[in-house]
């Protein structure tokens, strides 16, 4: 995974509460066995008309929001299913961060493992960012993971929370599976002290 440190980008405003992962990527696109190529399916049911043509009213189809790398969603972004296809679709569509007032737990975890930064800001800042993005789509903000700040055009820097481990992994491109594998001795010791609770082979009769 590529490290994330600091980037500047334009925002696409999608100020709808409780955007669920079925909207981010509908289930019919989940028959793939690959994680690449899902960008075109992001927000498919909102983004395309019944005949497959782009819906001109949807934010991602508007010329002024092309190339936006920061999605500003409504409260409780990413609720619903555990599909990691949601962050795969968003990164595939060119997003590096999503900003909301809070994220659903599983979506946040999945995003952090795919270099998609879930940025939580207070409701006032959230509203300000939406207004900025709607009034002037060319507005750029800076996201700095090291200092955990979003810098607005007026120079105001707003901090956002992130757990120390996820931050370390994102800044250094550390992969979390590698960390778990490095704990082999501790895992083996735990297993030695705790015999398996179940044997799935018992179900085979």
């Amino acid at each position: 995974m590529e490290p994330i440190k600091k980037f500047t980008g334009r925002m696409a405003p999608l100020p709808i509460n409780d955007i669920d992962t079925d909207q981010i990527i509908p289930a019919r696109f989940l028959k793939t066995t690959d994680k690449n190529g899902l960008g075109a399916a992001a927000f498919s049911d909102w983004r395309y008309n019944a005949d497959g043509s782009p819906n001109p009213d949807f934010v991602l189809n508007k010329p002024e929001y092309q190339g936006a790398s920061i999605l500003v969603g409504g409260n409780n972004f990413g609720c619903g299913s555990s599909r990691e296809h949601a962050p795969w679709a968003l990164t595939g569509a060119g997003f590096k961060a999503v900003i909301s007032t809070y994220f659903a737990d599983i979506f946040r975890n999945n995003a952090l493992k795919n270099g998609l930064l879930p940025v939580v800001v207070d409701p006032e800042t959230h509203q300000q960012l939406i207004s900025l993005a709607e009034e002037d789509p060319a507005t750029e903000i800076m996201v700095d993971l090291e200092s955990q700040t979003v810098t607005l055009p007026d120079g105001r820097a707003v901090t956002f929370p992130i757990d120390a481990f996820s931050k370390h992994c994102l800044l250094n491109g550390v992969d979390q599976l590698g960390y778990l594998l490095s704990l082999e001795d501790e895992i083996a010791a735990f297993e030695a002290a705790h015999p398996p609770r179940v044997q799935t082979t018992l179900t085979l009769g």
Partner: peptide
């Protein structure tokens, strides 16, 4: 609880998950 596919790989390979206590 439900997990994402990256975490499915974590559990397949190590039988463990990295978790913050809810």
């Amino acid at each position: 609880f439900g997990i994402g596919t990256s975490e499915v790989a974590h559990v397949l390979a190590t039988q463990c998950l990295i978790q913050n206590k809810p």
